[in-house]
Design a protein around this nucleic acid. Structure first.
Lengths: 112, 112
DNA sequence: CGGGATGTGCCGGTCGGCGATATATGTAGT
DNA sequence: ACTACATATATCGCCGACCGGCACATCCCG
């Protein structure tokens, strides 16, 4: 699972949302750094529907505009929890290794 | 940056290693779950060299076999640290949202 | 002498992300 | 009335990363 997909699931984790709201939510989560395009969004949505990680929670017409609301399934919640835990583990390991890195001779000299 | 790439940088974070050793190190990090293929490895290595995140630390011949050892550059260490922090943030947000999720009516009934 | 571990490298397929584009309606400004 | 922007959904083709498979070479063990 790649990051845009993970962000999508994260944006659905606390409450069901429709496509356009997801784009905004992801921008908010990432402090404006990630601007998901509709190409990425609807492709990922289709894929996640096929994988059973999300489902269509509602289809309604608001102000003349169709709106389809998606929600995480139990499987989606599980997948997100697993993925989050795995990523945290990798991040922790990366940081641990950086901190115990073999100090280069040049830098080691600073402690001599 | 994708996960195989992140794993590669992580495997190089504590000490320089050569290609084959990286495959084994990544398997160890992931508890045997990730078996990186050579196609992925050398492709990523080339890319990371081009990006200046890693460098060739040594080229030697051991037991008649050529061995090329790679090491993280300062830029690579920085990129890995940044990436690890970002991933941790996403993982934390995902877990937070899962925990504060709107409880569905069906489940909410269990608390009534 | 065959098989497995060590070691590097290429090639083609596949899949996900991305930019571009299209369509349609509501709202606000001029 | 016209324009522009936000809301909202959807498709298409390109590209880059990943991956499986293959090739090549040496060393060690049975």
């Amino acid at each position: 699972m790649q990051e845009p997909t993970l962000l999508l699931l994260t944006a659905l984790a606390d409450a069901p949302r429709h496509g356009y709201a997801l784009i905004q939510e992801i921008a908010a989560i990432s402090d404006g750094r990630v601007k998901m395009r509709t190409g990425t969004l609807y492709g990922a949505l289709d894929r996640l529907l096929g994988q059973g990680l999300i489902e269509v929670a509602a289809e309604e017409v608001v102000d003349g505009r169709a709106r389809r609301t998606y929600a995480l399934t139990d499987a989606g919640r599980g997948a997100l929890a697993t993925e989050a835990e795995r990523l945290r583990a990798v991040a922790t390991e990366a940081e641990r290794r950086l901190s115990v890195a073999v100090v280069s001779p040049r830098v080691r000299g600073a402690f001599a």
